[in-house]
Design a protein around this nucleic acid. Structure first.
Lengths: 170, 170
DNA sequence: GCCCTGCCTGTTACAGTGTAACGACCGACC
DNA sequence: GGTCGGTCGTTACACTGTAACAGGCAGGGC
């Protein structure tokens, strides 16, 4: 429950070392959220969220559509986009702008907070962290420029710790 | 050269506090750079840079292609992409990931440094700033996560100072 | 001169990304 | 029942980006 308060330090959820984000947990959060706000957490939205959560790396909308499709029943990308609109709007998944792809939200943070995405060029994994320090310096810079922020995108490409270890690649 | 007079006749929303990037200056920088590194600053690359520099807002590759084309001679988008690859690689233009569009580099900074882009939702202008403070906090967060950064994307969407002033619509 | 090589450009083709528009369905509410 | 709003299916289309191949052009070696 009390996820917001305890996350003050550098205690962030590492999802990838252990495997994918807890799908069930994310779905439960979505259900609570829909309940509270009177929104519809439909089957398509739930399945889209599950597919994104179960993948260990960013998924494109068409990849998601393909995974949602079964021989008799094809899910069109446009439907996936609408589901993703819903999910991103409520902070359940994030869009990785530099990849045109989507990842599950690893934190319980609200949509207002800004996350930093660490994208590994070697293994393609994406880690999400939050730093109050970065937010502070961003706020300061924005205030100085007289700019009123609405949404923030911070994406760092590079090499994750695990991939630096096994240097040479397979 | 009169820098302000060039915009007098048109009422386009004009992005930069200091006026549009000086095209000639940017071209001169490119020429020096090509000279120093033994690279070819070809006509297509120069004209692409000029088109991007003269626009007050981010331009898509196809927009650039259209501006470069003349009735008899059409420039294909793929050529523009190659020119843009060259220009971004050498820090002459930047790609705005959240818009799939390109802006001229307003600073003389090297490719290593990371810029912060302030994208105005109202007028579409993009301002580029650099903050040592933000870089420091990013570095600290990355080091803590054991992540080795290669490139950084920081894009803030919101409302620029000028648009906050004239609140409503035009 | 001639060929070879490397780089740039033109062209075609195609895959991926994203949105607009219309219609049908369904549940809620009068 | 009828209306209204939201979701979804479907089609169509525009935009973004890359692969692959061919031609052109300059420089270097013979």
């Amino acid at each position: 429950m009390d996820e917001h308060g305890t996350c003050g330090q550098h205690d962030h959820a590492h999802a990838h070392p252990h495997g994918p984000v807890r799908t069930a947990e994310l779905v439960a959060r979505a259900e609570r959220l829909a309940q509270d706000l009177g929104l519809q957490f439909t089957t398509l939205r739930r399945r889209t969220l599950e597919v994104v959560a179960e993948e260990g790396r960013p998924l494109g909308a068409y990849d998601i559509a393909e995974r949602l499709s079964v021989p008799g029943k094809r899910v069109a990308a446009v439907s996936v986009y609408r589901a993703l609109d819903f999910l991103t709007e409520h902070g359940l998944v994030h869009r990785i702008a530099s990849r045109n792809a989507f990842v599950p939200c690893e934190h319980g943070h609200g949509a207002g907070e800004s996350a930093v995405f660490l994208i590994c060029r070697s293994c393609g994994s994406v880690d999400e962290t939050i730093s109050a320090e970065i937010e502070r310096s961003l706020d300061r810079t924005l205030a100085q420029a007289g700019f009123k922020p609405a949404s923030r995108i911070v994406e760092i490409e590079g090499e994750c710790g695990a991939c630096q270890g096994r240097q040479g690649v397979e």
